[in-house]
Design a protein around this nucleic acid. Structure first.
Lengths: 202, 202, 202, 202
DNA sequence: GATGAATGAGGATTCATTCAT
DNA sequence: GATGAATGAATCCTCATTCAT
């Protein structure tokens, strides 16, 4: 399965080419879904030939994995870097609000990315593993950051996990669904309150 | 598109057959994903021929929609019926715990169902619409129920939405991922606390 | 191939039912073509079940053959009966004009019938044979009629064949194509002249 | 519908391959009819894979259209080139005879082609349009040629149309049917006479 | 006699992957 | 290294025909 001679690019030109393929794949998977995107589209969108795609990636799934990796990094880093710049005294309510804004941007920018990515997670063991590792890394990184803020929590991992998922739930709802029976300002306020209360910072 | 002569079964035998197809489709979509399941597999798994499948459903997507519909009903009803049987005085913490248990059962039973279903939601407008309607119905139904309990909330819809998604997040995590750095009892306790506090019932 | 137990209806009800099937088949084949018409459509259009269709006709082709037969009869009879009513002294130019009018009606009424029928003729030996017999019968019948008018021709069969095909060409062109570079009145006048001159009656 | 990435071959090898597919399609459609020919047969007959067929043609109909186009060109050119070589003084009777011979060759060579092609014309708007354009082009081209011979006719288009159809009728009859009651020499002589008289050249 | 549900082979089309140039 | 033409298995869907009720 797949090309056994996958090239690991060292040259700058090659690295850029590989990145273009990942970007193209990410954009297309995100927009149309994994199964509705074919390799030729990715190649064309990246400005290379199919053959070239297959010289960098063993198979279609490998492109997906690389794209997922980048996606995770982007999500994580945007939040992490924003948080690192925060100076004390920390206004937690504002911090949460800021994270929500950042997540909203990512969600809007990547449209259905999150769900398409998640969907694959449950159909492929390799993808699942990748996600798991990423989540672990993220949570541990943030736990460290909170500690550096002097926030000593009883069960930081669980709380971080929940907080992120809550924010995720909000963004998701706000970006994709727009139910008429939901007031999104109220929803957001509730989310912020829950997070703040979860961390006992208010 | 699809078979214009879709049979609407009235006979008991036919209804059962249609249901078998839906069940088979649901199981397969859930297990392997929509795109990794083909119509012949569904037919065989339901013990009928492909032709028969297409006499009940216009196309593959219609099977998916029917399965999604059933899935939504099952999820919703199990929770709704359980809640209806609750007598006052209401112990909210126990109620949330019960809903979590019910959701866990469904999640365990249906494995990756939820995510596969959700994934389709973002790639197909019809599926999206179906989900939206279902969510609306569920939230309104529960809001009514809470009111009948004498629980007058400021923004019930938003709270119900968040509560359900929180529980969803927990089940999801508990059933699929099992991160080593998470203590699932702690996670659950936090979730229950958040919900109870969200509804101001403790 | 096909049902070996084809019923030959004697009862009035059955004969009518068979005719309804033929009519329905004719209409559908003519409108959408043989291959774009399926047996269920024919059955529905005739107000019977598929099973009933197969009790009167061995297979789909048999319906076509029966429809073709009816079509030929209709075409031929309309012309033949019109000609039989003509009294001497015969105004040949008017006679030709009348035949053209009749043919135009049939063409208009049956839309693409002629060509669909003809098309099948060249793909199936049975259909070809049926057409051949019908043409032979028609030409001989008309030759007889012309003789009864006192028109003694050197090679009546060849002339009748040509005359009919010329008229056919005209109707065809006039009904289906409508080229901008053709003046249909001129075309008709030319056709009439050719036929009249072919028979040496002017 | 159809492959959006249809290859437009420039390389000699590719052009030849595309032509082989057209030829194979033409032969099969002509022999067995459009609906009785499947894409795999065409591919095999052309010595390529189905995938290759679909890289040159968007769908099956496109192969048909291409074949029809070639057929039209061949028919037209054979007649047109023959006529262009004729030197004055022009012996019209011989000219008509020559066209008949040429048409007979084409008819014999292509067997049922004409009718299969015509049949499609009445079931598909695209095919109809293609035929219409071809006919227009042919008639105008010939009108021009006749003028260059000094033959000034009152309504050349109508006459050319009729003449060609008459010849067509003859060839058709002579090649496919062979009715016993028809003397084909007589039929031919009548046709020639009609054409010659139609153009007033005798 | 009539029905119409069931069958399953067959057909058009797509697309991940390979490999000769 | 790069290309993109070629492959053909796999997929969704149709429909003539049968046969149990």
């Amino acid at each position: 399965m797949g090309n056994p001679n996958v090239r690991e690019p060292k040259q700058k030109r090659s690295v850029e080419k590989k990145n273009r393929i990942i970007q193209a794949g990410f954009a297309l998977f995100t927009d149309k879904g994994y199964h509705n995107t074919n390799t030729m589209e990715i190649a064309q969108s990246a400005g290379v030939s199919v053959g070239t795609v297959y010289s960098y990636f063993g198979d279609k799934k490998a492109i997906f994995m690389a794209a997922l990796h980048v996606y995770c990094e982007v999500i994580m880093n945007s939040v992490y870097h924003a948080l690192r710049e925060i100076q004390s005294p920390i206004q937690y309510r504002e911090v949460v609000d800021r994270i929500i804004s950042l997540s909203m941007e990512t969600h809007s920018a990547t449209r259905a990315a999150h769900d398409e990515m998640m969907s694959m997670t449950y159909q492929d063991e390799d993808v699942r593993q990748l996600m798991k590792e990423f989540e672990e890394k993220s949570v541990l990184q943030l736990a460290e950051l909170l500690r550096s803020w002097g926030l000593e929590l009883a069960h930081p991992h669980e709380k971080i996990h929940l907080a992120f998922n809550l924010i995720e739930v909000y963004c998701h709802e706000a970006v994709y669904h727009r139910h008429d029976f939901i007031d999104y300002d109220v929803l957001k306020r509730d989310v912020v309150s829950m997070v703040v209360s979860l961390f006992g910072v208010e």
